[in-house]
Computed example of a mutant assay.
Amino acid sequence: MANALYAVVIDGNQWRISHNGQLFDRYPTEAAAVAAARTTAEAAVAAGFDTRVVVETANGGFRVEWNSADAAA
C-alpha cells in the first residue's frame, strides 16, 4: 500500500497543509487545518493509501495527529 503524508505547518500567522512538497490552502487555526488534513487523508485511505497527518510543533519537530493504521485498529 502506498503512503501519503499530510503535514499541518505554520506559515506566518496561518496554518497550511503540506503534501508532496506543496503547500495548500490557508487556515486561521491549527484545529481547522488539522480537520481539513484529516478529511483529505481519510479520502486517500478510501483510494488505497496508508496515511498520516502530522502537526508542526513549536520546537520545529512534528507530532502524529492521526494515522490510518491506528484508525483501522
Results as ranks from 00 to 15, higher is better:
1 M>P: 03
1 M>C: 09
1 M>D: 01
2 A>V: 04
2 A>P: 15
2 A>S: 08
3 N>K: 15
4 A>D: 11
5 L>S: 13
6 Y>D: 01
7 A>I: 01
7 A>M: 06
7 A>E: 14
8 V>S: 07
8 V>R: 12
8 V>G: 00
9 V>T: 06
9 V>L: 07
9 V>A: 06
10 I>Y: 02
10 I>N: 00
10 I>F: 02
11 D>C: 02
11 D>V: 05
12 G>F: 05
12 G>S: 11
12 G>C: 09
12 G>Q: 09
13 N>K: 09
13 N>T: 13
13 N>H: 10
14 Q>G: 03
14 Q>E: 11
14 Q>F: 14
14 Q>S: 12
14 Q>A: 12
15 W>D: 01
16 R>M: 15
16 R>A: 10
16 R>F: 02
17 I>F: 05
18 S>W: 02
18 S>D: 04
18 S>K: 15
19 H>S: 12
19 H>Q: 13
21 G>M: 13
22 Q>Y: 01
24 F>C: 00
24 F>I: 03
24 F>Y: 13
28 P>Y: 03
29 T>C: 08
29 T>R: 08
29 T>G: 08
30 E>S: 07
31 A>F: 08
31 A>L: 07
32 A>T: 06
33 A>R: 10
34 V>R: 13
34 V>P: 00
34 V>N: 03
34 V>G: 00
35 A>T: 06
35 A>R: 15
36 A>W: 00
36 A>M: 07
37 A>M: 09
38 R>G: 04
39 T>S: 13
40 T>R: 15
41 A>S: 11
41 A>N: 08
41 A>W: 14
42 E>R: 14
42 E>Y: 02
43 A>I: 01
44 A>I: 00
44 A>H: 08
44 A>E: 14
45 V>H: 00
45 V>I: 01
46 A>R: 15
46 A>S: 11
46 A>L: 12
46 A>T: 08
47 A>L: 12
47 A>W: 00
48 G>D: 09
48 G>L: 10
49 F>W: 14
50 D>A: 13
50 D>N: 14
50 D>W: 04
51 T>Y: 00
52 R>S: 04
52 R>F: 08
53 V>N: 05
53 V>K: 14
53 V>C: 07
54 V>E: 13
54 V>S: 11
55 V>H: 02
55 V>T: 06
55 V>I: 10
56 E>F: 01
56 E>T: 06
56 E>A: 07
57 T>L: 12
57 T>W: 03
58 A>V: 04
58 A>Q: 11
58 A>M: 07
58 A>P: 04
58 A>W: 03
59 N>G: 01
61 G>N: 05
61 G>Y: 04
62 F>E: 08
62 F>V: 02
62 F>L: 03
62 F>Q: 07
63 R>N: 08
63 R>I: 09
63 R>A: 11
63 R>W: 00
64 V>Y: 00
65 E>C: 12
65 E>W: 06
65 E>L: 03
65 E>N: 14
66 W>G: 01
66 W>R: 07
66 W>M: 05
67 N>L: 11
68 S>T: 11
69 A>N: 03
69 A>F: 04
70 D>N: 13
70 D>R: 06
71 A>F: 05
71 A>W: 01
71 A>E: 14
72 A>L: 15
72 A>H: 13
72 A>Y: 14
73 A>G: 04
73 A>L: 09
73 A>I: 09
73 A>M: 08
73 A>E: 12
